[in-house]
Design a protein around this nucleic acid. Structure first.
Length: 285
DNA sequence: AGTGTATCCTGCAGGC
DNA sequence: TGCCTGCAGGATACAC
């Protein structure tokens, strides 16, 4: 479910609800979302105060006094803040971990498929972890030039390249496909085949689509909900993802679907010609 | 280095 | 209605 814009949306909604709260205890319903025994996790998290909530790539980063509580939402993970005495929403049907707060209230991690992960990392582990992730595409240091240089050392298809969190953080299958369409780059082109003009367009497209999706509160295909339980509104703005057979909004050609790297790639065969086509048939609005 | 495949797990849509 | 297959926004490990 959650890529950078969805996680950013969750983090923004969560911040006013949990920053400053102290964890009084935890209930582990499904130990398989943890990376340590339940007892150890409960012991270590209890008594900690949440000082800040941030995002790194697709991860929710809760800074406690000392360790970092890292939540990866996987495909179907949700973070649901609960008011004192409040019931979880009816669609939070697969509770995995519940953190209780001193003075009432709680934070529920609900995850149908349990591909998500909740980890408590000490500062050294966290710094090693964040170093393994690529740059944040919305930060100033992420320039078109840096993207071009990074692309140039890989023969991997650019769509796969974009999904690799070690190369760039936070991009998943929806926004990789959407950005490539906006940049008019075929998803299967080798990363190193992109010239500087391609990289400039891709850089712009990534930033535009990620920012627009954040403004829309993310994309809800099925499961995604923000901290208030509301779905994202970016589905309306998707140009290729999930639109196989429907007309490209730029040129009218039917959107095609390819499968490689075990994932679907959606693209316009006209606007995103295999060897690049920066000069003709802009994909439009 | 890159690719195909499998794995974790559940739910839903579509075909019959 | 039921059964089956394929598919899903992620991440990782493996053999080739």
């Amino acid at each position: 479910m959650p890529e950078l814009p969805e996680v950013e949306t969750i983090v923004q909604g969560l911040r006013p609800r949990v920053v400053g709260r102290t964890v009084s205890g935890a209930e582990v319903v499904h130990v398989d979302v943890l990376r340590e025994p339940a007892e150890a996790f409960v012991e270590r998290v209890s008594g900690r105060r949440i000082g800040a909530v941030d995002r790194r790539g697709k991860n929710v980063v809760m800074r406690l006094d000392g360790p970092v509580l890292l939540v990866n939402l996987g495909m179907t993970g949700r973070l649901v803040p609960l008011s004192p005495g409040g019931d979880p929403p009816a669609d939070a049907t697969h509770p995995a971990v519940r953190l209780a707060f001193r003075n009432g209230g709680a934070l529920l991690f609900d995850d149908t498929r349990r591909f998500g992960a909740v980890e408590l990392l000490d500062p050294e582990e966290w710094s090693r972890r964040t170093e393994r992730l690529g740059p944040e595409p919305l930060e100033p240091g992420f320039t078109a030039d840096a993207l071009h240089r990074a692309l140039s050392d890989s023969r991997s298809p650019v769509r796969s390249w974009l999904l690799d969190q070690r190369r760039i953080a936070g991009v998943g299958n929806i926004y990789a496909n959407e950005a490539l369409h906006r940049a008019r780059v075929h998803p299967r082109r080798p990363a190193r085949s992109l010239d500087i003009a391609d990289a400039v367009r891709l850089h712009q497209a990534l930033r535009d689509v990620l920012r627009a999706a954040i403004r829309a509160g993310g994309t809800t295909i099925r499961d995604f909900r923000d901290a208030e339980g509301a779905p994202g509104r970016f589905v309306r703005e998707l140009r290729v993802y999930g639109r196989r057979g429907e007309p490209c909004l730029g040129c009218g050609a039917p959107v095609e679907r390819l499968v490689f790297g075990n994932r679907s790639a959606f693209y316009c065969p006209v606007c995103q010609a295999p060897e690049g086509n920066g000069e003709t048939t802009p994909p439009g609005p």
